[in-house]
Amino acid sequence: MSQNLLGTARCIFQRDLILAARKPADVATPLAFFVIVSSLFPLGVGPEPDVLSRLAPGVLWVAALLATMLSLGRLFAGDHADGTLEQMTLSPHPLTPLVFAKVAAHWVTSGLLLVVLSPLLAMQLNLPAHAMGTLAVTLLLGTPVLSLLGSVGAALTLGVRGGGVLLSLLVLPLYTPVLIFGAGAVTASASGLDTKAYFSLLGAFLLLALGFAPWATAAALRISLD
């Protein structure tokens, strides 16, 4: 029996997880960046608890966003260099779900770990305890969007010299709505306001990105390989 689409997608997902486990430095670098940037703020703005808790949602979200961007480079670069991407493009299965499997593996090894780390860093920034849940949920909804949108940029800048800078110019404007509503939800929650609308919007972004980004990434990859 021929390998079906789901089997192939799972194969790609597992392979990327195995690779991440064998190259822990690649996974650890964005995480370390996330920790260091959010730890620098208390040192820079001073230790007043009120100021820190006001800054916390924005700082954590911006740091998570930049950390995700830092990890985008490795999404396709390695597979492009060794020819794996060519083989994926020539697979009898449609490229879009295969790309989705890669992005999913990328999120598990970047965004998901940021979500796990975030409460610890939130404590350091004196974020009120009741807002920590909101922070985790917004990151859980928001970081997949960052990975998905980032994959489009990573595919477009594949093999381009100085691609890293171009990637941030392409992707950062697209990240702004996620940042605004992600950090907004945490701020609202910290001041005891309702966050349902923010969650709905972030969920809508996620659905939109899930539908559109893998397809756009697959198209961009075909162009980059031409």
């Binding site: 021929s2 192939t8 195995i18 690779l19 190259k23 794996t84 083989q87 009898p92």
Partner: peptide, 19 residues
């Protein structure tokens, strides 16, 4: 071929992607 995977893993992945 991905250098961090073993030869067998590389071949298994290659055939899997090739359908």
């Amino acid at each position: 071929i991905q250098g961090d995977l073993s030869a067998a893993e590389n071949l298994r992945f290659g055939t899997c992607v090739g359908g």
